[in-house]
Amino acid sequence: RAAQGRTHGNLGNTYYLLGNFRRAVASHEQRLLIAKEFGDRAAQRRAYCNLGNAFIFLGEFEVAAEHYKKALQLARQLKDRAVEAQACYSLGNTYTLLHDYERAIDYHLKHLIIAQDLNDRIGEGRACWSLGNAHTALGNHDQAMHFAEKHLEISKETGDRG
């Protein structure tokens, strides 16, 4: 049964990479079911994240957000700060796709704080870029400028010419 779980996960990932997002979802849902049977929270977290990603490419952003929230909850339970940051970043981007910029800012700030705690300058730069864009969308030009300047500073430091 455990091997079946891993196989569903591998199939889900393969369908995803092939661009077959409906089949990816079906496989990852099976993977999730088996992970729940075993009480395997790390595997549940992976399945929720993979499901969220697949729903993004299906254009079902609300459903993606619900899955990323489950992944975030599990990341916190597992006390894995890096994957917690990743879930926050995914939620920030998903709420941007939903044009809910206030929520997007909330999650991008959570991502920024963890990136700073973990001394992840690339993550911090991405958070600032995202926050600058969300504030621009809301017409908060002073805040947008603040984050654009931080993004520029970090990009110079990390050698990101783009």
Partner: peptide, 26 residues
């Protein structure tokens, strides 16, 4: 698909480009 074409935020576009090749491996 029309929703996908409406994406204009460059940081989100970049995230999606990366996401397309990202999987949580078993």
């Amino acid at each position: 698909k029309s929703r996908m074409h409406a994406i204009q935020v460059d940081s989100v576009q970049r995230w999606m480009e990366d996401l397309r090749h990202m999987t949580e491996v078993e």
